[in-house]
């Protein structure tokens, strides 16, 4: 029962925000580009369940569309990280000790020396701020995360006897990586993927907050928080909705990751009890 508690709770929590993002493509309560100064900075009412901001825009609609931005940025960034990191890690493990392995390892170390914010700062200084640059910055930072994880776990799989058996059957390292190593890493990658996804949402929020992410008028949770900051003593509710949206989404994804790990890895589940 407690095995599935994390999974169910996390799935529901993150599911709500993913649904909100999807629904926002079809419908939102109010048009967020229409300004309505008369209705500005309203506390929650029946018409505006989360209130309105300093331009009179409906906060609920903003949070829904903001979910879209956050999730899209995080999804693509983690996709970049996985798409490049996993093959690199597999290649490094299959050629352990080679120059390729050494180069990939060094490259990983180097990227780890640049926190994603610094990468974003450099990219922004070079190409100007935008959501795309935020994606690239977070994506680059995700590559070594997946490369290291993949390499480490693949190395221990390469020592297993079923890989020896496959080699005795004449399969080359590319084929073994795809046929035997990758499927056995899938669970691990899914779990790490949800964790990186939640970290990417946090990173996107931070970048947007300092103005290096999505640019206005695109709503994003981080920007909404930055806008609310100057008015925090007048209208604290403005800071609450986007902040809680971030917390719940990230919490949901982390619980989901924990729940998946519990199910995929019975060894860890036993360790917990």
């Amino acid at each position: 029962m407690s095995t599935y508690r994390n999974l169910v709770f996390g799935g529901l929590l993150s599911g709500v925000f993913i649904c909100a993002a999807l629904i926002s493509f079809l419908w939102v309560p109010y048009d967020i580009e229409a300004l309505n100064i008369a209705e500005r900075m309203r506390t929650p009412t029946a018409a505006h369940p989360l209130g309105t901001d300093h331009f009179g825009r409906d906060i609920l609609s903003m949070v829904m569309i903001g979910a879209r931005t956050s999730i899209a940025v995080a999804l693509v960034a983690v996709g970049i990280g996985m798409g490049l990191g996993v093959p690199l890690g597999l290649a490094a493990a299959a050629n352990k000790g080679s120059i390729l392995d050494e180069l990939i390892g060094r490259g990983n170390d180097l990227v780890f020396a640049f926190p994603s914010l610094l990468i974003a700062i450099l990219i922004t200084a070079t190409f100007g701020p935008s959501a795309v640059n935020a994606i690239i910055a977070i994506g680059i930072f995700n590559i070594p995360v997946f490369a290291r994880l993949t390499r480490g776990s693949a190395l221990s799989l390469w020592k297993r006897e079923f890989i020896m058996a496959a080699r005795v059957s004449g399969k080359n390292s590319l084929r073994i990586s795809v046929e035997h190593i990758l499927p056995n890493l899938a669970n691990l990658l899914i779990v790490q993927g949800t964790i990186q996804f939640s970290l990417a949402i946090l990173a996107e929020a931070a970048l947007s907050y300092v103005g290096l992410g999505a640019q206005p008028p695109t709503p994003s949770w981080g920007r909404m928080l930055a806008d609310s900051q100057t008015m925090i003593s007048l209208a604290p509710h403005l800071a609450l909705a986007p902040g809680l949206a971030i917390v719940f989404t990230v919490l949901g994804l982390n619980l989901l990751g924990d729940g998946l790990r519990d199910i995929f890895d019975p060894r860890l589940r036993r360790g917990r009890s």
Binding site: L225, G243, I246, V247, L251
Partner: peptide, 9 residues
């Protein structure tokens, strides 16, 4: 799950 800048606010 809490972003530090929001926590700061």
């Amino acid at each position: 799950a809490i972003p530090n800048f929001w926590f700061a606010m």
